[in-house]
């Protein structure tokens, strides 16, 4: 019994990185959110496989801007990862700067995506494809906006000097969420933009 009762061991206190409950909670949240997007894409493929309509209705999607936008998101994945790395090494300014870049890239993605939306010749109610396209990308855009609010708060908290190399669980957890949102986009991009070229 004594073997597990090493009571003289010093333990970290409070929210420390991946030991914090928040990290585990975020993993579970991501599991459920990933399922949500999984079901959305199931709905898309189910309806696409059953449809008699032309799919997508206005022909194959133009890939240039969406590809660019995907690259922007991927860049933001790198910047937020680097931001966390910097805070781990106590480079607060660098961390702040990289978080700010993440924010700017995220905003850029949203702007481009809204612009893409406005160029579509159909909307949510025009046809079945439109309903799916705007719902699926809309769900993602909403997640990006939530992610941007999180990134904004992280920026603020870094600026307020809340975090250093010892305590920065919020950045670890928020960063994980951002990476998840970007990963979702890769699935959506593949399903909505790339796969139509294959069938």
């Amino acid at each position: 019994m004594a073997e597990a009762m090493q009571t003289d061991q010093a333990l970290p206190v409070g929210s420390k990185g991946k030991l914090s409950s928040g990290w585990w909670g975020m993993l579970a949240l991501i599991a459920t959110e990933a399922s949500l997007f999984g079901y959305l894409l199931f709905a898309y493929f189910y309806l696409a496989s059953q449809t008699e309509q032309h799919w997508p209705p206005d022909g194959l999607p133009n890939l240039l801007v969406p590809c660019l936008n995907t690259l922007i998101l991927l860049a933001s994945s790198i910047s937020i990862w680097a931001s966390e790395r910097c805070i781990k090494r106590n480079r607060l300014r660098w961390s702040f700067a990289l978080m700010a870049i993440t924010f700017a890239l995220g905003v850029r993605f949203v702007v481009i995506q809204l612009n893409e939306w406005s160029k579509k010749t159909y909307d949510m109610t025009t046809n079945l494809y439109g309903s799916l396209y705007f719902t699926i990308t809309g769900f993602h855009l909403l997640h990006v906006i939530v992610g941007l609010i999180i990134v904004m708060m992280l920026l603020l908290w870094i600026a307020l000097g809340y975090f250093d190399d010892r305590r920065h669980a919020a950045i670890t957890i928020g960063g994980l969420y951002w990476q998840f949102v970007n990963a979702v986009w890769l699935f959506e991009f593949t399903s909505l933009y790339l796969l139509p070229y294959l069938y």
Binding site: Y39, Q53, N127, L128, S131
Partner: peptide, 27 residues
């Protein structure tokens, strides 16, 4: 998420005029 989504899609169909379950338009 499956049931939340399906009820949300139903609500969209009813309130915004999407076509997920709308037989006439391929739902």
């Amino acid at each position: 998420p499956s049931v939340s989504l399906v009820f949300f899609l139903l609500w969209l169909d009813r309130q915004t005029g999407t076509h997920f379950f709308d037989v006439v338009n391929g739902g």
